[in-house]
């Protein structure tokens, strides 16, 4: 009995070995993925990026039939994880989630990595910043707030939403510039993420926050804060009453924090095409749409070429805002 099973085992091993040895090169794309794929997330478990990566990985697993394991490589404020994606073997078995920070950190001289260090696969999500005030604030519309900011001496108004030089700081700088004001017209109070900033706004310590609407959502729903406008081309379906900056003030300024899937540079094109096609299927699935809209996350699709162009454009925009704010080292 044991002999037989050992023999069959040996035979099957030989068969596997043979098929591996005689494996045809052109069959590579069809065979991919032949083993589990690692999905690197540069941010911690439980956050928005982590959640997005997990739903994408779960749906990829369903489509491609191999496990897609999410690994949180945290540390270095995102630098460590992003460089882990860039320096992995470009064999398709390590992919990762790129976030907007990749188009910002190199301007500050924190890393050599730029959007060009990756093979872009797909853009999945973008969240525009909103402009929030406390519910006890006298400003009912963004126009009133903007007039008051213009009239006040520089630095009188205090805003927050993330750390110095973070995405929401640059959104504020961009908005000021679009109104023709200096970058430091509103003083930036650095905070450890959007949640403490929203709490301080409700506690009366700040005049406004420019974090994204999903991040502000719970406090807004609790009646402690109001969203006056969003810096996006179109309204958010969850907050239909909040106008865009263009509708409210005629200012055509939009930006956002985005998330996309990328792989190390020089990924074989057939694997890249296969992954982008699978990601398109994920993006179109009802599960993904439901999950994202439930969290209030915006969904945006961009295939590899579009994603690359999108990152280039965003990179230039971020560089400009950082130079205006005096944050750029480049």
């Amino acid at each position: 009995m044991s002999k037989i099973s050992r023999r069959t085992f040996a035979a099957s091993t030989a068969a596997v070995a043979a098929s591996a040895a005689f494996g045809f090169k052109p069959a590579l794309a069809q065979a991919y993925p032949a083993r589990p794929v690692t999905v690197i997330v540069p941010w911690g478990a439980g956050g928005g990026t982590d959640a997005t990566a997990r739903i994408v990985a779960a749906l990829l697993e369903k489509d491609l039939g191999q496990p897609f394991n999410v690994v949180n490589r945290t540390g270095g404020s995102g630098v460590v994880g992003h460089s882990a994606i860039a320096t992995a073997q470009p064999d398709g078995y390590t992919i990762g989630m790129l976030t907007v920070e990749i188009s910002m950190m190199h301007w500050q001289g924190l890393t050599e990595l730029t959007p060009k260090s990756y093979t872009p696969l797909a853009l999945m999500n973008e969240d525009p910043p909103g402009i929030q005030v406390s519910s006890s604030s006298p400003y009912k519309t963004v126009k009133e707030l903007a007039e008051a900011i213009k009239a006040a001496p520089p630095g009188k108004f205090k805003a927050s939403g993330t750390g110095q030089g973070g995405i929401w700081h640059l959104a504020l700088v961009g908005w000021m510039q679009a109104m023709g004001l200096p970058a430091n017209q509103v003083a930036w109070v650095p905070s450890n993420g959007a949640a403490p900033a929203m709490q301080d706004l409700a506690a009366g310590g700040l005049d406004l926050t420019t974090c994204s609407v999903p991040e502000a959502r719970a406090i807004i729903e609790a009646g402690k804060a109001r969203s006056l406008a969003i810096m996006a081309p179109a309204r958010n379906p969850i907050f239909k009453d909040v106008p865009t900056l263009k509708e409210a003030m005629g200012i055509d300024y939009a930006t956002g924090a985005w998330r996309g899937i990328g792989a190390p540079k020089n990924l074989p094109p057939e694997i890249a095409t296969k992954l982008t096609a699978a990601l398109k299927k994920v993006y179109d699935s009802a599960e993904f749409k439901d999950f994202m809209s439930n969290r209030g996350f915006g969904t945006v699709w961009g295939d590899a070429a579009h994603f690359a162009g999108f990152m280039d454009k965003g990179d230039a925009q971020m560089g400009e805002a950082m130079k205006a704010a005096g944050l750029s080292k480049a």
């Binding site: 478990a45 439980g46 956050g47 928005g48 982590d50 959640a51 997990r54 949640a195 403490p196 929203m198 709490q199 409700a202 959502r217 719970a218 406090i219 609790a222 402690k224 999950f291 439930n294 969290r295």
Partner: peptide
């Protein structure tokens, strides 16, 4: 309010949203 009290609560909020 979705504001985490500590690191564990931050993870818990993520799970609640998910």
């Amino acid at each position: 309010f979705g504001i985490p009290g500590d690191t564990i609560a931050a993870i818990a909020i993520g799970v609640l949203y998910m």
